[in-house]
Structure formats: structure tokens, C-alpha cells
Design a binder for these strands. Structure first.
Lengths: 221, 221
DNA sequence: GTCTATAATTGGATAGAC
DNA sequence: GTCTATCCAATTATAGAC
């Protein structure tokens, strides 16, 4: 967690063009600092003093931009979730090579969602859900739900073209993502020190695709 | 979360037989209070004052039994994890009715692991892992890892008896549990207010067993 | 808008009497 | 072992000068 690229697609912050004053830069640096601290320490272990020190701004300035710690946390989390899920949206093409598309989706999925960074985010969010349920709902909508629906749409299209035989696309999409995921998410959440084994992940992805296609291949099960 | 049955299998607390004085009852009531508060609020939102008030004991008494908040939290979590996983151990028989066994495992699995209670526990643990990694490791060993290994042993036995065709029992066990789980864990963790749909869960379990057996059934895939 | 300094509260942990 | 009362550090949030 040494260095992390700064978020670049936040809607509330315009780029620092000529006219934009230092205020936006301050807000951006606050958000960047908060992002790093949230990902490293979670909600509770991150203090507003730490944010102010790292930004670096005064606490008064910090509160001038974000009314409370919760609001700052929510801003960080939603921003990050959109950034992460956006990675997968881009590589969801409509091709007749079903196995190839599934492989690319699966590999991108494990690459993006199971990174150390995404794990820190999930840990922070899950730990905060009890107190801020709306954050959990927002993440669920922007993340797993959107991804499953997108995949289900692709699977339904493949079914109509006779490439697959799928009666319930949403169920099949959930199954596919679950198989590919395996226990990687649990391991990542509970064992922060253990680095995942890339070779085993690849093997798990391949085996998952085989299992899925063996059942949903065009021949009627 | 109105009432919750009290834990009854804690090793550090003897039952309140004749000789046992009030000390054990105090410790038990502390643990019960902490358990409820941990499950309802998580580690940080639970304060030692709340525990003392709910036990009800004084804070000094509390600290006489548990040296720190972390120690109390760990005691609660390990105790609860053993209780939950113990539920599944019991119904893992050695039968030739593979589909029946898998169905019973899957149903018990979703029943036990995906209860509101277990979800609160997972939320509390995951939120605390960043600061107390040993807790995450302990839960992982006692929970997912032990269950997967046990299931893998059963699958390997079925393979040797010619009932299934499984080359990698651990991989297959992970796949089976993942399919059955689907996105129920994510939903449970992120959407505490949403009650799971029992009918859909049952359908998901059945579909998962079909998918699994279609590939690993005795005929060579 | 931004800063320094501080208020106000909370919460983990303890002292001393019984 | 248990209680009441309290200490001390940390933390969120704000007041007032510039």
C-alpha cells in the first residue's frame, strides 16, 4: 500500500484548469487522503486529524468541504466503487466466442475485485454497514448487482443465438460469478496477509468455465 | 434481534453447579451481553460501558474477567464461530446417496451460515480484521477451511466408490460451496434489512446441485 | 477559504473502599 | 470479586483571527 493512483473520475471535482481556484484542489487532496486512509485503516481507525494531516489541510478546511466523517467516508466509498466496477464494464463485448468472453470476464473479475485494494474497500464498507446501511445498499447496486445483470444480459443473448441453453439468465450469471470467485473473497477478507496464488486462481477460473459450459452448453442438459 | 439464545458450550465457563460461585455467572453474563452487542453493533460501536450496563456489572468487574476490549471481542467471536460451524459438522454422514447428502449439506449450510446472526458475526469480524488479523485467521480456520476440507474428504470417498468422478476434491468442494452460496453472502453482508427469499434460495440450491452433478457425475466429463 | 487553538464529548482503563 | 467514582487519552467538531 505504498502509493496508489489518485482517483480521476470524481464528478464533484473539476480538473484544475485555469479558472478553477485552489478550493477544488483542496477538496481533491482531501478526498485522495481520505481514500488512502479508508483503504488502509477502515472507517473507525481513520481519524479526521489523520485526514487533515495527510491532505494536508487544517481540520477547519476539511469540515468546510465535508460536513461530517460519515459524509467523507461515503464520498470515498461510492467514488471508489464506481471506479472499480467501471473496469469490468469496458471488457464486456458481444461476441460469438462464448468461452472466450467468459474467460475474459472471469479474469478481469478476479483481477479487479480481488485486488488488495478492493479487499480493503470491502472490509471497510462491510464493517460500516451496521451503522450506515445506505452505504451497503449503494455498493451492492453499483457492484455485484450491476455486474450480474450485465452478465445475465449477455447470457440471454447467447441463448437466443443458440450458443448456450439457459432458461434463467440471472441464476446462471450468479452461478458463473460464484464459481469463478470460489473462496477467494473470503480468503481476501479474512487473511489480509496471505497473497493469493495466481496459478491456482487461473486453474480455478478454467475449471469454473468448464463446469459452467458443460451444463449450459448448447446441448440441452 | 430481540432475544437470542445464550451460548452454552463455552469452555471457560463451567455450568453453575452447587459449588460454583457467582463469579462464573458474572463472566457468563458478561460474555452473553458482549455477544449480543458485538452481533448488533460490531467491535467499534460496542463500548465497554454498554457491555457493563447490559451484563449488568460494573466496569471494574468487567475488566477483572477480560483484560481488554480486544480480548473480550475475541472470546465472543471464537465462541460463536465454533458454535455455528459445529452445526454443520453433525450432519455430514457417509452415505451412497450422494445427491441426498449434498442436498442436506447445502440446506444446512445456507440455513446456518446465512442466518442474520451469522451475518452480523461476519460483519463484525471482517470490520475488525484490519486491526486484529489473528481473529480473521482463526475464523477462517474454524469456518470455511474446515468445512471445505470435510466436504472434500466426502467427495474423495464418493470418487473412490465410483459414485462421482472427481480429480481434485478440494477444487470441487470449493466449487460446490460457492455455487450453493451464490450471492447470498454478499446480499447478507451489504443489505442487512433485506430478508432472503426462502423459495429462491431453495431453487438456487437445487440448481447448484444439478450443475455440480452434471459435471462430476460418475460418467467421465 | 484557511489557519491555530480549543471546546465538548466519548470511551478505555484504573484506584480505593467494601 | 465487586462497586462507585474518576483519570487520561483520543477524537469529533467549532470559534475566532487573518
Amino acid at each position: 500500500m505504498a502509493s496508489r493512483p489518485e482517483s480521476d473520475n470524481d464528478m464533484t471535482i473539476s480538473r484544475d484548469a485555469g479558472g478553477a481556484p485552489a478550493g477544488n484542489r483542496k477538496a481533491a487532496s482531501i478526498l485522495a487522503a481520505a481514500r488512502e486512509l479508508v483503504l488502509d485503516h477502515g472507517f473507525d481507525a481513520m481519524t479526521m486529524d489523520m485526514v487533515a494531516r495527510q491532505a494536508p489541510v487544517s481540520k477547519a478546511t476539511l469540515y468546510a468541504h465535508f460536513a461530517s466523517k460519515e459524509e467523507l467516508f461515503t464520498a470515498v466509498v461510492i467514488d471508489e466503487a464506481n471506479r472499480i466496477t467501471g473496469e469490468i464494464w469496458r471488457i464486456m463485448p458481444d461476441s460469438d466466442d462464448v468461452a472466450g468472453v467468459l474467460r475474459r470476464i472471469a479474469e478481469k473479475f478476479v483481477d479487479v475485485f480481488l485486488t488488495e485494494q478492493a479487499m480493503f474497500l470491502q472490509r471497510a464498507v462491510i464493517g460500516a454497514v451496521s451503522r450506515f446501511p445506505s452505504i451497503g445498499a449503494a455498493i451492492f447496486e453499483a457492484g455485484p448487482k450491476a455486474l450480474t445483470e450485465r452478465l445475465a444480459t449477455f447470457l440471454a443473448g447467447a441463448h437466443e443465438r443458440g450458443l448456450l441453453n439457459i432458461q434463467d439468465p440471472m441464476l446462471a450469471a450468479r452461478q458463473f460469478l460464484s464459481i469463478v470467485r470460489g473462496d477467494l473473497d473470503i480468503r481476501g477478507l479474512l487473511l489480509p496477509a496471505v497473497r493469493p496464488d495466481r496459478a491456482q486462481i487461473r486453474k480455478q477460473v478454467e475449471a469454473g468455465i468448464d463446469l459452467f459450459l458443460h451444463f449450459y452448453g448448447s446441448r440441452r442438459p
